[in-house]
């Protein structure tokens, strides 16, 4: 194992690690000797599984304490070795996040290989990317689907989910100039359960009391219904337009 910038550690920290590693006579070593000893120790560890040194240290879950070897006056001016985040990652994948029962957010990435294959030497696209949104019943059988054309530079899209009570997933697809289609990646599935009252044939059994029981809690004293579009639809339907 390589130890990067181990010489930036304080002597107390080096002693602490040496003690943890079971380095003999670490108390008698000066700074340089500690660094040499640790580099030797960690170099040897590369070839042996971690389990072999397990017995040396009393390792309990939730008991790995941080060291407290520097005074609080120490100031850190930015952490070393960090880099900016990439714009996206170079694997081909697509993810679907539920925003509300009517909208989801999809983001995706494309590998270098896929990107190279879909353009010619002059950079002209050899086909088109598109998203295929599939609506499935709870038994996973596909009910319907629709496509969204996307540009090669697109990496995210808001996806409309037409109906509650179904599952949805999105395929990131490619259609070449001959019209042949290929799914490059499929997203996770999101499920939108339909509220009982959305399709109840006998709303609240016709009982005003029961209606009040539910809606008295969801309305402010000024008559404003809780901020939820589905709930407003349900309330409007069940109250026959009163709410």
């Amino acid at each position: 194992m390589i130890l990067i910038n181990i010489d930036s550690l304080s002597t107390v920290e080096l002693q602490h690690i040496a003690e943890q590693e079971g380095v003999d006579a670490w108390q008698d070593m000066d700074r340089e000797e500690l660094i040499d000893a640790l580099e030797d120790a960690f170099g040897e560890q590369d070839d042996e599984p971690a389990q072999t040194i397990k017995g040396k240290i009393n390792r309990n879950r939730y008991c790995n304490s941080l060291t407290s070897y520097r005074g609080k006056a120490y100031q850190v001016n930015g952490l070393p070795g960090t880099e900016s985040l990439p714009e996206c990652y170079h694997d081909t994948s697509i993810h679907l996040l539920l925003r509300d029962p009517q909208w989801a957010f999809a983001y995706w990435s494309l590998s270098h290989q896929v990107l190279e294959e879909c353009v010619d030497e002059d950079g002209n696209e050899l086909g088109r990317f598109f998203l295929r949104v599939s609506q499935c019943s709870s038994g996973a059988s596909e009910v319907s689907s629709y496509d969204i054309d996307i540009d090669i530079s697109d990496r995210q899209w808001n996806i409309n989910l037409p109906e509650m009570g179904y599952c949805y997933h999105v395929d990131l697809c490619w259609r070449d100039r001959r019209g042949e289609e290929q799914s490059l990646a499929q997203s996770n599935t999101v499920e939108i359960a339909a509220p009982y009252w959305k399709h109840a044939t006998e709303p609240f059994d016709g009982s005003l009391d029961q209606f009040c029981t539910h809606f008295s809690s969801l309305v402010t004293r000024e008559g404003e219904i809780v901020d939820n579009a589905i709930l407003r639809d349900v309330a409007h339907t069940l109250s026959k337009g009163v709410l």
């Binding site: 910038n5 920290e13 520097r70 952490l79 070393p80």
Partner: peptide, 13 residues
Amino acid sequence: NAVNTEWLVKAEK
């Protein structure tokens, strides 16, 4: 197979 010890110590802190 490396540990950036300088980063680690500062990040822990």
